[in-house]
Deep mutational scan, measured.
Amino acid sequence: GATAVSEWTEYKTADGKTYYYNNRTLESTWEKPQELK
């Protein structure tokens, strides 16, 4: 079936920290989303 993983994109900030952005909800988070675990 369809999965929600594709909504999240992993980015890195200029200082090398990783964060996650959800293209559907426009939410961003420092925590790894449940969908990616």
Rank of each mutant, 00 (worst) to 15 (best):
L26P: 02
E7I: 06
Y21R: 05
S28W: 15
E27G: 03
V5N: 11
N22E: 01
G16M: 02
E7F: 06
A14W: 09
W8D: 00
E27Q: 09
A2T: 13
K17G: 05
S28N: 06
Q34S: 13
K32R: 10
K17P: 01
W8Y: 02
K17L: 11
G16L: 02
K37G: 15
T13P: 01
D15I: 03
D15H: 05
V5L: 13
K32P: 07
E35F: 06
T13K: 03
A14K: 10
A14L: 11
R24K: 15
T3L: 12
T25I: 01
T13L: 05
A14Q: 10
T18E: 04
W8R: 00
Y21F: 14
Y20M: 01
S6D: 12
E35C: 05
T25M: 00
N22I: 00
K32Y: 06
E27T: 06
A4W: 14
T3I: 13
T25A: 01
K32A: 06
P33E: 02
A2N: 13
T13V: 03
E31P: 02
K37H: 13
A4E: 12
T9I: 12
T3G: 13
E10L: 05
K12R: 13
A14D: 09
W8Q: 01
A2G: 12
V5A: 14
L36Q: 06
A4P: 13
N23I: 08
T18G: 02
E10Q: 08
T25E: 03
K12H: 10
E35G: 10
T29E: 03
V5R: 02
T18K: 07
T3Y: 06
E31G: 04
T18F: 08
A4C: 06
P33G: 02
Y20G: 00
G16N: 04
P33S: 02
D15V: 03
N23Y: 07
T3F: 10
K12Y: 10
K37N: 14
S28E: 09
A2Y: 12
G16V: 00
E31H: 08
S28Y: 15
S28R: 10
Y20P: 01
L26W: 09
T9N: 08
V5F: 13
G1R: 01
K12W: 06
D15M: 05
A14M: 09
A4D: 11
T25K: 01
L26T: 10
E7Q: 05
T29N: 04
V5Q: 11
R24V: 15
G1F: 12
E7H: 07
V5Y: 14
R24F: 15
G16W: 01
L36M: 09
N23L: 08
A2R: 03
N23V: 07
Q34E: 15
E35R: 03
T3A: 12
E27F: 04
G1Y: 11
S28D: 04
A14F: 05
L36F: 12
V5P: 13
Y21C: 06
K32E: 06
T18Q: 04
N23W: 13
E10F: 04
T25L: 03
W8L: 01
W8H: 00
E27M: 07
T13N: 08
N23S: 09
E31T: 10
N23H: 15
Y21K: 07
T18S: 10
T29W: 04
E7Y: 06
Q34V: 11
A4H: 12
G1L: 14
P33T: 02
A2K: 05
T29Q: 11
T18R: 04
T25Q: 01
P33W: 03
W8M: 01
N22P: 01
D15F: 05
